[in-house]
């Protein structure tokens, strides 16, 4: 098995949240899909880690494993550890885990309209957690719901607390969901594509809000996205995922300046830019791999412009430590970094 630990061999409990060598597979009628193949990352209080990847890269499944909301079966976690404050969530009894889920670690989802219940008022939904998990009375919980709606800057929270989800616009619904996730003062907030369904001007508002909340409440935030622009705006560190592995991990400035993995470079080159027109776009050839039949060696080798036989085809690259917390899972990471490839 490959060793992909981003944090090295530190003992557990160094970080607020640490995923270590996680594997997830889905057992379906057609076979076994290997969705996560050894993911490791960590998160500290007050920082934003962006997990970047295309559909099927496993970025959301990792988050679901942390939250403990994977459907098992068909999902299976054959290996791995997820430490929260030093305790392994995967070994925890379900009732203890339930205490952590939603309280210490909470999550906001992409599509607020389907994540909210249409037949209850938003105030009821925000205060539900408080009523069921604390001794708070109904009235006190409702009052707290109004405070939370103020916190996420919903105008006229007092009058809108009794409104239903359909009476809110897309951006406001997303704010309601954020308010709901903040009800128990979480330490870790996982935002899974929180602005993908929103318009640009509203997206900017929501991203600003999340950045402010993370700072003011000193939360650790995992931002899952496919948008390289959003990442550059808010993240401190980036983990780039491909075929269920983190193929590159670095602080946000270094990665945009000089990517150390061919896939990251391919992604950066293939997006149209707002600030100049540019000529023909560079493309990444081919398609993301089928998770039921992953390629041998480096999972990216069939699409990689720098592929070198036989090493890339035969040998899965280890995650190479490049210093300053940078890692890259490429046999030629050092050459990439020095600009000596391609």
């Amino acid at each position: 098995m490959t060793n992909l630990q981003v944090g090295g061999d530190q003992p557990a409990g160094q970080h607020l949240l640490e995923v270590r060598d996680l594997f997830v597979e889905f057992h379906t009628r057609d076979g076994v899909a290997k969705v996560i193949n050894g993911v490791s990352y960590h998160l500290d209080a007050g920082e934003t880690l962006a997990v970047l990847g295309e559909s099927g890269s496993g970025k959301s499944v990792t988050a679901q494993a942390i939250m403990g909301i994977l459907d098992m079966p068909p999902a299976k976690i054959p290996k791995g550890q997820i430490f929260y404050n030093g305790d392994d969530l995967l070994k925890m009894a379900e009732n203890r885990r339930r205490d952590i889920r939603g309280k210490d670690i909470s999550m906001i989802f992409q599509d607020a309209l389907s994540a909210l219940n249409p037949v209850f008022s938003v105030g009821w939904q925000i205060s539900e957690t408080l009523r069921t998990r604390t001794e708070m009375s109904k009235d006190a919980a409702m009052k707290r719901a109004i405070e939370l709606m103020d916190l996420v800057k919903i105008p006229g929270a007092k009058t809108r607390v009794k409104d239903y989800p359909h009476q809110f616009s897309g951006g406001m619904r997303q704010r309601v969901m954020i308010a709901m996730s903040l009800a128990m003062d979480p330490k870790v907030l996982i935002a899974d594509e929180p602005t993908t369904a929103l318009d640009v001007t509203v997206q900017a508002q929501i991203m600003d809000l999340l950045a402010d909340l993370r700072r003011d409440l000193n939360m650790g935030m995992i931002l899952i996205t496919h948008d390289l622009g959003v990442v550059a705006d808010v993240a401190d560190r980036i983990a780039v995922m491909y075929a269920g592995r983190i193929i590159e991990h670095a602080d946000v400035h270094s990665i945009y300046k000089q990517p150390a993995h061919p896939y990251t470079r391919g992604l950066l080159d293939s997006i149209p830019r707002l600030d100049h027109k540019g000529t023909e776009l560079a493309t990444i050839k081919g398609l993301p791999p089928n998770l039921m039949r992953l390629p041998t060696g480096c999972k990216y080798h069939p699409r990689c412009p720098y592929v070198q036989k036989p090493i890339c085809v035969d040998e899965e690259p280890r995650s190479l430590n490049l210093g300053n917390g940078r890692t890259s899972a490429c046999h030629f990471a050092k050459e990439m970094l020095d600009g000596n490839l391609g």
């Binding site: 900017a204 990442v231 550059a232």
Partner: peptide, 27 residues
């Protein structure tokens, strides 16, 4: 101008020297 300003750019250094216009509310 507001629309252009709201587009996130894939350049972390841009956030320092970009003209930020944030619109209030929704359409």
């Amino acid at each position: 101008q507001a629309l252009l300003s709201a587009v996130p750019m894939p350049d972390p250094d841009a956030r320092l020297h970009r003209d930020i216009i944030r619109l209030e509310g929704d359409v």
